[in-house]
Design a protein around this nucleic acid. Structure first.
Lengths: 358, 358
DNA sequence: ACACGTATGTAAAACGTTAAACCTATTTAC
DNA sequence: GTAAATAGGTTTAACGTTTTACATACGTGT
């Protein structure tokens, strides 16, 4: 591999000069030598040695993405958003997948319960020697400790709430998204609207429930605890809640995950009913599956790429400012979701006066 | 950050000795010093400086995953398989996502046509300075050129065929998977079986078609070109083929992607028909969506994690052998798929004698 | 004629690690 | 009793880059 020294010898200049030219520090170099060096670099096919560079500058030029489960459907799009931004800023990306390390057995997405803190060998390994910054993609609120203590590397949390000071979070606006979905159902004439939420202690479940509540309140509909069910984010558990929930006399249901809407669809099918005709369903996530439901599922698309990009931009800012403004209080960036209308909701023909009568 | 030198000073030994202990070269060190050093390493919280290490050894300790589209549904599980193996061998993982670089416009998964070769700035960037080896996740046959010429880095192709010599490929066994699916349909009594394939020039389409053909042949059913349609791997294009395909009088269809089966389901729904009752459908991929179809889609699961792991193991072998056996001819490793039975196929009640009558 | 600034560079040291060569005391072979 | 081997190290140089400090020539103002 050709080095800076060889370029220098080839052009009869010092290594320093070549380095200055390659790094755009051109205030000390004439146009002529600059062109001469650049030509040699191209001709000999010089590539920088990142390790030598990193050793000298004490920067790795890498961002570490820590993903609790890289195969979870939300993660890849977030990563795509991140890569876009990082490439533009000249950072390379290193990936740590925690899935394999997870000691708490069973299916990750369904069975993991919120943990106060992650203290994981894989994370402990991320030192300033590995990366210049960390982007943590989590599904639950977390306090993350890595080496050295208390996240000395600039970090941004994506898709969940960080409990560390100085670790800002980039999240979708759960409350508003739920508010919009439920308001949509109300404008379609529904006033008895059920909810199938995720785990009760999950922060997303809670925020979305607040949005549901606000929508009801603003339209003068009384909140009825009977209409609220909690499940485990998956089809099976949602399916098990559906029968008794429908018996409460609701005409529509807000499912906090498209996969849970799948449970409702299955129940409806068994009863010879059809979403969008005999009953109304909205989901959340706009996961692939929503498009393949028959009829297509009306839902809320999570702004995954956008979240990834915003988080990366935030991190780039921190790195370029050199951690100057690091003493701000916990920062939270909410990205709006986008409403996707398909065919799973029908208009209700019920006299208007009924609305107040829960 | 604490360095090897500080450990050395603390223990009154030379840096070399510390290095030897840390790297398991213990043939030249007494048990006593070894323990003393290890204790100091723990106490002072020493972490190796990968850049210094890499600069000296001329190894990066990293594997680069090149993904043509990291958000494509097959990629994350392959990556998960890779990470498992690489962690075990002490390699870190760096990710290049080519999606953003793709110059050929439009939707990647649907519109890209097979390219002879990828010669992409992102790939050109992967030099021995970036990674020790490359795992390339592609959807189409490819000749990959990176810098320096002709893949000097050990590489393995996953999920598609590499046209480079010395770049082995790890693939699912398309032919056999298709053979099994179609044989399954035949044992259920079907003998007029349609196909909705992917793009006609796609290598997976071709191999699966061969499997289809073999199944027919072995059961004495004549191949009928009328029953074969090509689409673009997506719901819409498959939907457009469905009507005329069904008019040929088939009783079952083999879709080469679950998403295309979605097109068939949509058509059936419009006709008041139902898969698994009035018509039979099998898919391919066992993508998430298959489970959410109503009724559930019988399909073939791609062995994605397994492919990722096998490819990584192959690469580790190459790296540890130091490229000694690199002059073998093109190697192809086929991983079997696994059949997933759900409810989209019905048994046909037709007199047995009918079978020969196409 | 002199000091001084500016443009255009160069030399040497340093980043943290490991490979190669070297050293010394003790044990073993014969 | 001597040579050779072994155990248990040490010293030095090198990996490729960037930073810091220094050097030279030329123009300019006075």
């Amino acid at each position: 591999m050709v080095t800076i020294k060889e370029i220098a010898r080839e052009c009869n200049v010092s290594a320093t000069t070549v380095s200055n030219i390659l790094n755009g520090k051109e205030h000390k170099v004439s146009e002529a030598t600059k062109r001469r060096v650049q030509e040699a670099v191209r001709r000999l096919g010089y590539r920088p040695n990142y390790m030598a560079k990193g050793l000298r500058t004490q920067k790795t030029g890498m961002i570490c993405i820590v993903a609790e489960d890289i195969a979870q459907f939300t993660t890849p799009e977030i990563v795509e958003g991140i890569t876009g931004c990082c490439e533009e800023h000249g950072y390379r990306i290193i990936v740590k997948n925690l899935r394999m390390y997870a000691r708490w057995g069973g299916s990750w997405y369904n069975d993991i319960r919120a943990q106060d803190s992650v203290r994981d060998p894989a994370i402990q390994e991320i030192t300033p020697m590995t990366a210049d910054g960390v982007l943590y993609i989590a599904g639950h609120a977390r306090k993350v400790s890595c080496f050295p203590e208390d996240f000395p590397l600039p970090a941004v949390m994506i898709h969940s709430y960080a409990e560390n000071p100085n670790v800002p979070s980039v999240l979708m606006d759960d409350e508003r998204a739920a508010y919009e979905l439920v308001s949509y159902l109300i404008t379609k004439g529904h006033n008895r609207i059920g909810v199938i939420g995720g785990r009760e202690d999950n922060i997303h479940t809670q925020k979305r429930l607040l949005g549901y509540q606000r929508a009801l309140y603003e339209h003068g509909i009384l909140y009825n605890p009977e209409w609220i069910r909690y499940a485990r984010w998956d089809l099976e558990s949602a399916y098990r809640e559906t029968e008794s929930l429908l018996k409460t006399g609701i005409t529509a249901v807000f499912c906090m995950a498209d996969r849970m809407a799948g449970g409702v669809y299955r129940y409806l099918d068994e009863q010879g009913m059809r979403a969008g005709r005999d009953f109304s369903v909205v989901g959340f996530d706009n996961q692939d599956i929503a498009e393949y439901f028959i009829p297509g599922l009306t839902t809320m698309a999570q702004p995954l790429r956008e979240m990834g990009r915003r988080a990366a931009e935030l991190l780039m800012g921190k790195l370029e400012r050199g951690g100057v403004a690091a003493q701000r209080p916990h920062e939270e960036i909410l990205i709006p979701c986008s409403f996707i209308e398909r065919d799973s909701v029908c208009r209700l023909r019920i006299p208007e006066g009924n609305i107040q009568k829960n």
